[in-house]
Nucleic acid binder design. Structure first.
Lengths: 161, 161
DNA sequence: AAAATACCGTTGCAGGTGCAACGATGTCAA
DNA sequence: TTGACATCGTTGCACCTGCAACGGTATTTT
C-alpha cells in the first residue's frame, strides 16, 4: 500500500480537478457581470465627463427627472435603485449647480418636489445625445447578442428581486 | 410672474417630449447593466456571508488563488480587475484571518507571494459549491438567453478594453 | 382630540474605494 | 560602478456609499 502512496496522491489530485474543478472565477457569471458593469460605467463616464463633471447618482437623478417631470425624492429613490440619502445628496449638488430646484409639495409637507431648471434640461439634452451615441456603440459591439443581453439584464435587475 | 413661469416650463417640457423624446433611463444599457450587477452581487453576498464574512475583493483574491496557486499581488491585480491597493488590503485581512500566507519571492525581493493555507483551501471548497449552486440558479433564470448573455459580458468586460 | 404609529428627507458616522505618493528593490545605460 | 529610471506593494487621503438615527409631518388608533 505504501509504495502506491505517490500514485494515489496524483490520482487524487487529478480526480479533484475533475470533481471540484477548483472553481473558475473567470467563468463565474456574477464576476463577469461586475467587471462588465464597471468597464462600461467607466467608458460612459469618460464620455460625459467632458460635458459636465457629474457623478453616477447625479446623472441618474437628472435623467429620471428629465423624463418624469416634477417628482419627489421618494419616487426617484424607488425608480432609480439608489438609497434615499444618495438621492438627497445628489439633488443637493444638482441644486447647487443650478440644474434643478426643490419646492414643497402642496398637500403633503413632508415631500420635497424636484424639478429641472432650463439649465438642467439643456444639459440633459446634450447628455441624452451622448448617451444615445454610446448605447449605439455598445449595441454594435454586441451584435446579434444584444436582444438576449437586454432581456437577461431585465431578468436579473428587475424590481421583483 | 411665477404663474407664467410655471406654465411656460410645462409647455416647454411637453414640446421637449415630442422633439427630443427626453431619453429613457430604464432602457439605457449601462444603467440596466449596473443595476443587474448590483442586484446579483447582493444576492450572492447574502449566500456566502453565512459561511464567511468576506468582502467582494477578499472573495475574488481567494477564488483566484485557489486556481492559480502561489502568485504575486501584481498578478492578481491584473487578472481580477482590482486596484493593487485593494488587493493589498484584502490580502492583509485574509492573512489575518489565517486564509493565506505571504512570503518573499526568491529572486525578486519586490514581489510578495501569496498562497492559500489549508484553512483557506477548505473555505474555498465550501464557497465554490455555493458559487456553483448560485450560478446554476442564475442560468436557470436566464434560460435560453444565458449563452448570449455570457458572450455579451465577455465582449463588454474583456481585458482588451 | 390626543397619542401612537408610519413616513419623508437630511445628516452623522463607519467603512470601502480610487488615486497618488512613498520606500524598497530591480534594471538599464553611460 | 554608478546614477537614472522602472516596478512592486503599502499607506495616506479625500471622496463616496450604506446604514441608522433624527426632526418634522401625515395617518391611524383609541
Amino acid at each position: 500500500m505504501s509504495r502506491f502512496a505517490g500514485r494515489l496522491l496524483r490520482l487524487q489530485r487529478i480526480s479533484d480537478d475533475f470533481a471540484a474543478m477548483s472553481f473558475d472565477l473567470d467563468a463565474f457569471l456574477p464576476y463577469r457581470l461586475a467587471v462588465a458593469a464597471t468597464q462600461v460605467s467607466r467608458r460612459f463616464a469618460a464620455r460625459y465627463e467632458a460635458q459636465a463633471g457629474l457623478s453616477i447618482p447625479e446623472w441618474r437623478v437628472l435623467a429620471h427627472l428629465s423624463r418624469s417631470g416634477a417628482v419627489s425624492v421618494r419616487d426617484i429613490t424607488a425608480r432609480v435603485n439608489l438609497d434615499k440619502s444618495i438621492v438627497s445628496r445628489a439633488a443637493a449638488r444638482l441644486e447647487g449647480a443650478g440644474y434643478l430646484r426643490k419646492s414643497g409639495h402642496g398637500t403633503d409637507q413632508r415631500l420635497v418636489v424636484l424639478d429641472l431648471t432650463d439649465s438642467g434640461r439643456a444639459l440633459m439634452d446634450q447628455l441624452g445625445c451622448i448617451a444615445d451615441a454610446f448605447q449605439a456603440e455598445l449595441l454594435a459591439e454586441l451584435g446579434d447578442d444584444a436582444p438576449a443581453f437586454r432581456r437577461a439584464l431585465l431578468k436579473l435587475g428587475g424590481p421583483t428581486d
